[in-house]
Nucleic acid binder design. Structure first.
Lengths: 263, 263
DNA sequence: AAGTGGTCTAGACCACTTT
DNA sequence: AAGTGGTCTAGACCACTTC
């Protein structure tokens, strides 16, 4: 294992020469555990350890990086808090995956008002390769007019159409994504993205508003035009805070609600 | 080596609602740092250390509880992650308070679409003591018909009425809360609750939907009836997961949006 | 200089899972 | 029994703030 050792300034020679150590932009050394965390994140990003897989034990990583187990532990603690890995006592630490109920609800906040049954159904209306609209290309941080995959779909619960969604994905990352593959795939869409295209969503921001259903939208959802709908605009990010999905959803909230925790 | 593991099986305090719904078995011994965390939380709850104040140093707490500093540290780490305390290097650890910009945005998620100026204005429409409606009393975990304080207010930004809110507070906890005190108070409402009534909100859940503005609502907000509005129903909790506020808000989202982070 | 939180180490033992 | 993560300790030193 090569594994470049951390670039720490070694315990003996702290920034003695730095002088005044003004609060400016001097090359501040990050804590050891942050450097370890960055190294582990690199291995996650590069696919050295794939979603669902076991990563090396704390002891082994400590040996590899030439630091104490406690330092590795603190690094993994933070990765665990960020939902990049999952610890299981006695078993080891695993790369987080969207193929688990655990991760599902982080990205689907619409809950039925009563009961628990979902009976979800996913109908793909359209998949095409096109050019990114200006606002989407800006949010995806790609050049205006770059190729993107556009997806339009309806999600129903217990047979009731509830979510109409439009997605834009960078074409460069999702070559070969077709309606057929989307339709035959079982499980969450982010699971497919992660296993088939090597792109794992780890974080997202959402902007929520109330809007009025336009006639075309109302027809798809089977409601009257003018019906109030929840508009949810999401930008999802993968490793390195790189945006890789724009999603605009319209939620019917007469029997469901968007659940949020403030803490 | 200390004499004996100070494994006190959790000091059973009456009403301290240990009912954290932990799915585990009953008499499980919790880790030491969890017990320390519970003790510190008790001191926070009892007001021994008040919001904004400095709590004893880690070394002092370690001495008081007869454990190592590392154990106290881990307890405070979690309290810090839960926003109950705030650490400041070199200064100490402080009890979190709503009188800081830092805490404001955790509980106000409505952001202007452009710009940053807020120019907030708060107009109290009504304050009265009444009996809790059935749904509110259920959410506040009080007896149906118990006395509650009811508040109705409008918040404007840059002179534009944007939020119409109705609040219900347990009467027992907020004796003496009047429209006058609400009007003359500068700063966030949760700040007033915390300093004047000793009740600190630490967590909340929100249910969000899209609804249509009823005529009476539309008039207050200065929009047309039928305008789509964001309905935000919040239940806030204080220490021990005790619900102490029900808040039903209607947000005008044509120039603002509800911002959320999925992580 | 003294006090605080922040980092790092080394070692011990515990709880859980698998062999 | 062996391996993993989880807890706890004791001590050292660093970074920051205040005196």
């Amino acid at each position: 294992m090569s594994s470049a050792p951390p670039n720490l300034p070694s315990p003996n020679s702290p920034g003695a020469g730095a002088g005044a150590s003004s609060p400016g932009n001097s090359p501040t050394f990050s804590p050891l555990y942050q450097q370890i965390k960055a190294l582990i994140t690199q291995s996650l990003q590069s696919g050295e350890w794939k979603p669902g897989e076991l990563i090396p034990s704390e002891v082994e990583l400590a040996g590899r990086f030439k630091v104490s187990q406690g330092t590795v532990r603190k690094a993994i603690d933070e990765l665990s808090a960020e939902n990049l890995v999952v610890r299981r006592q006695g078993k080891g630490t695993f790369v987080a995956t969207h193929h688990e109920a655990r991760a599902q609800f982080r990205f689907l906040r619409l809950m039925p008002d009563t009961g628990e049954v979902h009976n979800p159904d996913n109908r793909i209306l359209e998949v095409k390769r096109t050019r990114a609209p200006a606002d989407v290309s800006r949010q995806l941080d790609i050049k205006s007019g770059d190729s993107v995959i556009f997806i339009r779909r309806v999600q129903s619960f217990d047979g009731v159409p509830t979510i109409l969604e439009e997605l834009w994905l960078p074409g460069a990352l999702f070559k070969g994504l077709t309606a057929e593959r989307l339709n035959e795939y079982r499980g969450p869409m982010y699971g497919l993205f992660e296993t088939e295209f090597g792109t794992r969503m780890i974080r997202a921001t959402e902007s929520i508003r109330a809007v009025s259903a336009e006639p075309a939208v109302a027809e798809v959802l089977g409601v009257a035009a003018g019906m109030p709908l929840l508009s949810v605009e999401r930008v999802s990010f993968t490793y390195g805070d790189k945006p890789v999905e724009v999603r605009k959803g319209l939620y019917l909230t007469d029997r469901h609600h968007y659940q949020n925790e403030l803490s």
